[in-house]
């Protein structure tokens, strides 16, 4: 029997407390390589904390967490992780291209020119290459931010509400691109509120009070909740877990 490759993301009983707030309360999650998994949950449920833990920004108090079989900070240091923060997190005075050049250099991308051109084509912003980021709309900034996370072709892509402020046409383009990345082996973890977005994931994890309370494909979750659509299923399952 061939050895199973280790999952791209493996979290076991992860806990983290901020003061008196228990942000993660024994979270378990496996994400296979090349899979797109959506994290759904109300505000303050721990999605953001979990993603920041995977990005090596937070050290959990207990439990284990591995990205590509190593510690998150190791995976980040190896340039294997792309992280798109919720706020665009770009330098407003610099142009789109200057921002991308900077992030490419941080991630050790050599011959950044063609990669930047590719990333900009992906997010459909090739014509705004020389615009200062300050002059872009919120949706355009999200797209630049995504381009910045794609530059070094990371194996694991962490997306924190990637399509906030992005119009439906562009959102569809994003998802087409996510699909082709996943087909090429990139693992993607998306946190989202948008049900349309959630339904496009291979698998969903419903997170509440710092733990996964339901897991499965969108269709399975709808079926399990006995609901008409994903939104009602989400409400029913979230309510049931109280």
């Amino acid at each position: 029997m061939p050895a199973m490759p280790s999952p791209a993301i493996q979290a076991r009983g992860v806990t983290k407390t901020f003061g008196r707030v228990r942000a993660l309360a024994g979270l378990d999650l496996d994400v296979a390589r090349g899979e797109i998994v959506g994290l759904l949950g109300p505000n303050g449920s721990g999605k953001m904390t979990f993603i920041r833990t995977l990005a090596g920004l937070i050290r959990p108090e207990s439990g284990s967490i591995e990205v590509l079989g190593r510690s998150p900070s190791r995976a980040v240091a190896d340039g294997q992780v792309g992280y798109m923060t919720q706020a665009a997190a770009l330098y407003g005075e610099l142009t789109v291209e200057e921002n991308l050049r900077f992030f490419a250099a941080l991630n050790g991308v050599r011959a950044a020119g063609p990669r930047i051109a590719d990333a900009l084509a992906t997010v459909d912003l090739a014509d705004r290459r020389t615009s200062p980021v300050n002059t872009l709309s919120g949706g355009m900034r999200s797209r630049v931010s995504l381009a910045a996370a794609l530059l070094h072709a990371p194996s694991v892509l962490l997306l924190d509400e990637p399509t906030v402020g992005v119009d439906p046409v562009q959102r569809r383009e994003f998802w087409n691109h996510f699909r082709s990345l996943a087909a090429a082996g990139t693992t993607i973890l998306v946190s989202s509120h948008v049900m349309d977005e959630a339904s496009r994931c291979d698998r969903l994890g419903l997170i509440r009070d710092g733990a996964i309370v339901a897991e499965g494909s969108a269709a399975r979750l709808v079926e399990r909740a006995g609901a008409a659509d994903l939104e009602s299923a989400f409400l029913i399952l979230a309510e049931a877990s109280r």
Partner: peptide, 12 residues
């Protein structure tokens, strides 16, 4: 601005 977060989630 959140860019520090992004920098720390890079090999820097």
């Amino acid at each position: 601005s959140g860019t520090l977060e992004r920098l720390l989630a890079s090999p820097l």
